[in-house]
Amino acid sequence: MNQERINSVLLGITPIVLFIALWQSLISFGFAPTSLLPPPGAVFGKLAKDFFNGDFLHDIAATLIRLFAGFGIAVVVGVFIGLAAAVSPAVNAVVKPLVRVLAPIPKIALYPALLLILGFDHASKITLVTADALFPILLSTYYGASMVEQKLIWSAMAAGTPRWQILFKVVLPAAMPSILTGCRIGLVISCIVVFLAEMITSTDGLGHMLVQAARTFQTVDMFVPLIMISMLGLILNSLLHWLRSYLLRGFPEV
């Protein structure tokens, strides 16, 4: 069992090591000039050095604030509307066509409009993140809540749970696995969108760092924010994974 696990971890590390080795060898054997492709050592060295740089930390903070604000609003709004649509036919009749129209629209196309209406500051980026993360969360909440086993609800009602409490005491916890799946998708989308919005127009944040570096052809600095956003995504994802296994400890097969 343990040997099997070690093997699978080793297998997983292999492509990453190979990737970095290929990267290094492209430079070592002179296939790519360092002005176009900086050596991995230089990139990771710069990344480590940047962690003691106030500007870099400021950029990370700006990105994180937008990410969390946008994602947080999406979770609250998405879960609320998703639950409401699952339990109320009237809400369902309104929400369903709206979602069908709004979900497939590339939200990033709304960004210029948001800029014009909300200005170039945090608000437009946060709204964009919310708009993008909202639909996966809303839809999975809705599907999770509409598939709650009817007999769970009956059991709780027979035990004397008032109708209005059923939503919070049965439907919400029973839909939790599905809700958290939606949140995980929403989180990754948030990471991606916040970065892109910052690339398109911003004065700070990781995305802005990349664009700035691209303008001045600082290739090393172009790779640093990309690696940073990947690391942020990984960290946030594992935090969510940990939260998930705690919240869903009673559910079969997490």
């Binding site: 590390i13 991606i192 970065f195 995305g207 990349l210 990984l234």
Partner: peptide, 27 residues
């Protein structure tokens, strides 16, 4: 084995905005 090989790589690539690679690829 194929899954163990590719999964971690995918997890790393997943949160990277692909459109953000545009400046580098253009380079």
């Amino acid at each position: 084995a194929v899954a163990s090989f590719f999964n971690p790589l995918m997890m790393i690539i997943y949160p990277v905005p692909k459109a953000a690679l545009m400046p580098i690829i253009m380079l």
